[in-house]
Amino acid sequence: MKKSRTELEDVVLQYRSDGIKNGRGRKLSTREFAKQVDIGESTLYLRWREPESFQDKELLAIAEFIGMPLEQVKEKAIIKKTPDNQSSPSQESSSNKNSALVEKESPLKRSNPYFRFVSFALLVAIFLSVILNAVPIFKKWLLPVEIHSTFQGHAEDLDADELGQALDLHSKLYNYKLIDLITTTRGGKIEMTGTLEWSSLLEGGEVDKTAIFSASGTHIGDTAALIYAIEDEIYQESWIGTLTLHLPRSGPISGYWVSLHTEEDPISDGPFAIGRVKLKR
């Protein structure tokens, strides 16, 4: 049999069971009682299970039906105190200790995400520090080998009349044509890119090859000094040289280039090649 939770339920059960009191001469069913107090049967079951959900008008209807003062009905509608829901001093002490432990632990639990974030940030910082410290080492491995040398010597200007005899020159082998030479000056730096066509004088002077011309260097005042490179993508050939130009902000440009020829020269044994450059805007 289901155990009642309130004294009111016991009183109502006695009233339903006593045929003289209820005036029926027999036991009233739960449905009949619920109908008499104008409470749905399922609602009445809910009220017995959860007495705190009783409404005042429902308690008033029960009080009037069983002939009991309303205040007394309200008192009996309170859940009974049983050993199950009464805690001993030791249990209360243990509960208090557990609560204290929870209170002590909760700040740690709340701080765990913060500590995880700080730990992660430290790991990232350490990782980046290791990588940055290792970069110079990697650069040494990846960059070309550096060769350091020390030289002693002298330099001199050449007299115009002695220039031909003084220089160890190649003979005149080629004619060149610079096409669409785009020049960019930025601050004291200068860059040139364009197309170079050349023809061999030994083979009749007809245009033979086309290559990419690029140069970069320094531009100070009206003077530009550049290092140039010529790349022949078809024949997979390339060579470099130096270029000195009189390059004013307007007007034509003139200058000289110096390089080394590797082709066999039938006239001269000198390795150096020097040439004149003239450009117009």
Rank of each mutant, 00 (worst) to 15 (best):
Q152L: 04
T244A: 08
L101H: 08
K172L: 13
T183L: 05
K139F: 13
F54W: 14
S250K: 09
K140V: 11
L108P: 02
L167E: 07
E162Y: 07
E156F: 09
R186M: 08
L279M: 12
N175C: 09
L70M: 11
L143E: 15
T82F: 00
S87P: 03
V124D: 01
Q86C: 11
A63C: 01
R26N: 08
T262W: 04
S129C: 10
E103A: 12
L132H: 11
E203H: 11
T244V: 12
V73A: 10
E50I: 05
I253A: 03
S4G: 08
G275A: 03
S53Y: 03
E41R: 15
K177Q: 14
L163E: 10
E146G: 03
S53T: 13
L279A: 06
M192I: 04
T30P: 02
L202Y: 10
I274R: 07
S129W: 11
P144H: 03
E156C: 05
V135N: 09
S94D: 15
V207K: 12
K3F: 09
K35H: 12
E71V: 04
W239N: 13
K2F: 11
N133P: 07
R16C: 14
L8H: 02
W141T: 13
M192L: 13
D161K: 14
F65M: 12
Y174Q: 10
E58D: 07
R249V: 08
E156R: 12
W141E: 15
K280M: 12
P248D: 01
Q72S: 06
D161Y: 10
T184M: 03
L243D: 04
V130K: 00
G275K: 03
V145L: 11
L158M: 06
L173Q: 13
G194N: 01
I126E: 06
T223E: 05
L44V: 01
R110P: 00
T82I: 02
S99P: 01
S111T: 15
F115T: 08
N98T: 15
Y176I: 06
P51A: 00
S88A: 08
T223C: 02
F120E: 06
S87Q: 14
I234F: 07
L173N: 10
E32D: 01
G205Q: 08
V73P: 01
A77K: 01
T183F: 01
E103L: 12
D168M: 07
V12Y: 01
A100D: 11
K172Y: 11
